[in-house]
Every structure is written in C-alpha cells, then in structure tokens.
Design a protein around this nucleic acid. Structure first.
Lengths: 219, 219
DNA sequence: TTAATATTTTAGACTTATCTAAAAACATTT
DNA sequence: AAATGTTTTTAGATAAGTCTAAAATATTAA
C-alpha cells in the first residue's frame, strides 16, 4: 500500500524530472513539496526500499518503471476529476486544481474508469493538458506557443503552459478560453506583443508573457 | 483541522448513540472501528480536548453540538456521494458504500453543495436513507417495516434497515428495489412470511427476516 | 587547489495513530 | 461482602511523517 504523502512525492518527482530532463535533486523536491530537505531524504529512502525510485546518495532521484506508472495514474485521476469539476459542477478552470489534488488520491481504478466513460472519454483536461489512458499513454497534441506564430496564421487555443490562478483568470476575462479561435493580425517586434482577432470578432493585444504561455493548434 | 481518523470515530460514536439511545461505550466504539480498546481511549481523550465529545472516565462518550454537526455533515457527504455513484456511474446499491466511505472525507463544503444541486437535490440515498440538508436537518419519511403491514395494504419500498451486501443483492434479484410497488396478499402466521404482489404483476413470498428489514411507505 | 558557499545527509526529537500487556475500575454472582 | 469476570484505562512500544540543528559532501570561485 502506498500513502497519500508517498503519492505526492512521486508526482513531484515525476514533474521535476519531466521539466528538467534529469534526475530530481533533494532541494528541488523539497521546494516542490514545501518540506524540509531532511524530510525529503527520509522519504526518498522509503520510496527506494519500495522500488519506486532509483536513488544514490547525493545524486538525485528518478522514478522506476513502477514509480512512473503510479505517477502517471495520479495525473490521469487528477485530470479526469478536473474535467468533472469544470464540466459537470461548473467550477472555473482556476478553481478545480486544488480539489482535484485531493480527489486524485481516492484509491479505486474502477471508479476513475467509470468516471472517464461518464465524461465521454475526454482526451484533455480543462487546461488542455492531455489525460493519459488507463495504460498510461498520453494523447499527443500538435501545438505551439502563440509566441511562435506569424502574422496571418490562424489557430485554436488548446492549452496553457502556466497554470497560475492569475493567468487563468486573465484568460477568462479576455475570453481566451480553450477552443477560442484566433488569428494573428500583427506581431510587434518592439516588445513581442501580439495583436489577435478573437473568434473572428474582437481585436485583442496580448503581451509576450501571455503568448509564451498559451498553446495554439494551427488550422 | 480534523483528521480522517477522527472523523471516522465521530461517525461511529454518532451511529452507536443513535442506535443504543445512550452514550457510546469504549468497547462498542472499539468493535465498530476494529481497533483496540486502548486506542479508543486515546482517541476519546483527543476528541475531548477538541470539544467534540463529552467524556468522563469509564462513563462512555456522547457527541457535543459541534461533534454532532460534523458527524451529520459526514453522513450528508456519504449519502450524496452514494447517489452520484449509483445514479451517474451505475454502481449497484451494495457497491457504493465502501467508495463513499473514502469520498466522504473530501474536505470541501462547496463541493458537496454543488454535487447536491447537480444531482437534483435528492432527499434520500440509494438505500432510502435520508440525506441531511446543509444545516443538518434530516427529511422525515413516514415508513414502517413490511413486517407490520396487514393483508390488503399497499405501499412503496422506500428503504432498508439492514445494509449488508447479501441482503441488498437478494433484493436486487427479487426486483424489490427502491420505488417498487407492493401489495400484501397474505401473512402466514406460521413463520411470519408474507406473500406480496410486486408492481401489480408477479407474486412473491418473503421471509420475516426480509420483511423486518424492508421499509415501506403506505399508499 | 584551497576557501567559501551551497546542497545533502545524519541525528535526535515531536505528533498521530496504532498496538500489547498489565493495572485499575466497575459489575455480577454466589 | 467477597470472589469472579468484564470493561476501561494506563504504560510503554512502534511506524509514518514531519521538524531543527549539526555534520558531511559537492560545487563554485578566487
């Protein structure tokens, strides 16, 4: 049996190794988990005895196959719950994360599979992040940051890089939701801000900070 | 903050005091929780320092107002989750209990209120047990055990006394589900078994064990 | 390459929730 | 009322998860 805390560590290690492309350092984990570095060392040892991580003193950790499988399952649960919270209960996309953090620890594979079916087998969560299937495979999505698009190109908003509440609420206010159609009108070299036409209607200028964090699928 | 374990103790104490009509003994709690009596004593002390139970050495415990409020909220969450699992995810009424035991500990009042609305403000769970409202008030249901009905009387199945898997599966096989219409054809004094007409169609004989555990609302 | 700095690990302690075994308190029966 | 039996509490241990402070190990800079 694996505890909720152990699961959270696995997920943190998964995210760090994904992001950094190398083993997760004690410090990085301690930052991610908001715990003392000493606690991380303790937990790493525990996870190593359970064969969920590969660990060598002072070398950082990586997930084993089984550790990776569990982390992926957690992400699957998290994202399926997020879809439920947003689509069925009407939560905003910046509100559902915390609740999903709790719900993802419910131990029942059958439940999450039924949930997935009930929701119509969604492939992406409300932030556009892919939902792994029960075997752990992620759907691939052809996407690019808005910042890499040229004037005249068209696309659909399919996801976000940054997940902060502030950013998500900003997007909501600008109507830049998942599925919004955009056309790049002009790129201002001066500050890399971009002028868009939104859903064929209104015009909008977004900063480079925004364009770097918004994923678009070209059409 | 209250832990999952503490919540489970509160619920156990609530059920015992309801059932017995008096304070819950250490032994009764230890049986209900499947823990050693010594652990119960420890926990009772902890709950007492949090003012969730009234406790005097060797006198058993009762819930304080706040303890009762929390226990009722747990029951509310449990039953709302059960409705969701059965109605939306297609779980059978004997399958949903265990999962609801886990889900009821999700800490978010807003969530359960949204869930309730999403489910159409149900007043009873899949076993016919009343769902307390957010203020802790239970709907009252005029019901009687089938065993107290006389030949010729008609009613609707509205709940069960016993919640065992075996009993619920038996009822499923006999089509004696919540909402089923029954008419008492004959009561056999010999063994108190009862002959019914089910939904105006088929005839059925049930034992006294069954009739004592099935709640009917007369019509 | 040594000194300064940063990271990681060890050591020891605390809390929660559990256990067993023994002692104390309460209840029952003769 | 004493003896027996049951229930409850105390005492002492254990495991998970956390902490702080100090020691050990890496890394970076002079």
């Amino acid at each position: 049996m694996i505890s909720q805390t152990e699961e959270n560590y696995l997920k943190a290690i998964y995210k760090i190794t994904e992001r950094e492309g190398k083993s997760a350092s004690t410090n990085a984990i301690s930052t991610a988990m908001s715990t003392a570095a000493a606690s991380v060392t303790d937990m790493i040892k525990r996870l190593a005895t359970k064969d969920l991580v590969n660990y060598e003193k002072s070398k950082g950790v990586t997930l084993t196959t089984e550790g990776g499988r569990l982390a992926t399952l957690l992400i699957r649960k998290h994202r399926i719950w997020e879809v439920f919270l947003c689509e069925k209960l009407g939560y905003a996309w910046d509100e559902c994360h915390e609740l999903a953090e709790e719900l993802e620890h419910i131990q029942d594979d059958e439940l999450i599979n039924r949930m997935e079916r009930y929701l119509g087998n969604p492939k992406f969560d409300p932030h556009g992040d892919p939902i792994p299937d029960s075997a752990g495979n992620f759907a691939v999505r052809s996407q690019m940051p808005l910042s890499e698009m040229r004037a005249g190109e068209c696309g659909v908003v399919v996801g976000v890089q940054e997940h902060s509440t502030a950013f998500l609420q900003y997007l909501d206010r600008q109507m830049l939701n998942l599925g919004a159609r955009i056309e790049v009108i002009e790129v201002f070299e001066f500050d890399d801000s971009i002028k868009l036409k939104l859903n064929g209607e209104s015009d909008l200028i977004v900063s480079s900070r925004v364009s770097q964090n918004l994923f678009i699928k070209k059409i």
